[in-house]
């Protein structure tokens, strides 16, 4: 039995230890916003936060999440400034990569409240968008950064639920 914190709630699962976190989130707990793209940490579609860091859940055995804090796109509850910016800039095309893009971008803003073009490219090149909505992803990150310097602190669902 493995226990961990998922979007602010303690949950437990008895899947085999080597099951990737991705399938546990999706198929055990029904949070389908996190996507499967490659299974080898090359595309970023499965990006979630583990203790606040963006990780590839397809390549993270569930055993490593034991006792830890996992946040997914659903945890933002549509309230993260990036999500607003994503709508404003009309970023998604097919949309399949976008949960991962937003989760990845959120950790950039956490460390760097006014990223340059180069900062964004360097951080976001871990994530593929096959529709190549890159210009808009970039624009949306910039606009979220300028609108809300404090973006990040507010959007950790764990802390926001407790407070």
């Amino acid at each position: 039995m493995i226990e961990f914190n998922l979007n602010g709630k303690m949950v437990e699962t008895d899947v085999p230890d080597d099951t990737p976190l991705l399938w546990v989130i999706r198929d055990e707990f029904g949070l389908k916003g996190t996507k499967f793209g490659c299974g080898i940490a090359m595309c970023g579609a499965c990006t979630v936060h583990l203790e606040g860091a963006a990780i590839r859940s397809c390549s993270m055995p569930i055993a490593m999440a034991k006792g830890k804090q996992v946040n997914t796109i659903e945890g933002f509850d549509g309230k993260h400034p990036l999500q607003e910016a994503w709508i404003e800039e009309q970023v998604p095309q097919c949309g399949y990569c976008q949960s991962g893009q937003i989760m990845q971008a959120a950790t950039l803003l956490e460390k760097n409240s006014s990223p340059s073009d180069e900062d964004i490219s360097a951080h976001m090149s871990a994530n593929i968008c096959r529709c190549m909505a890159y210009p808009r992803i970039k624009k949306a990150i910039k606009s979220a950064a300028t609108k809300s310097k404090s973006a990040v602190n507010i959007y950790d669902p764990a802390t926001s639920e407790e407070s």
Binding site: L31, K32, G33, Q90, P92, G95, Q98, I102
Partner: peptide, 10 residues
């Protein structure tokens, strides 16, 4: 179709 593609609901 954009909003549900930003919050994992699509």
């Amino acid at each position: 179709d954009v909003p549900p593609k930003t919050n994992g609901k699509a």
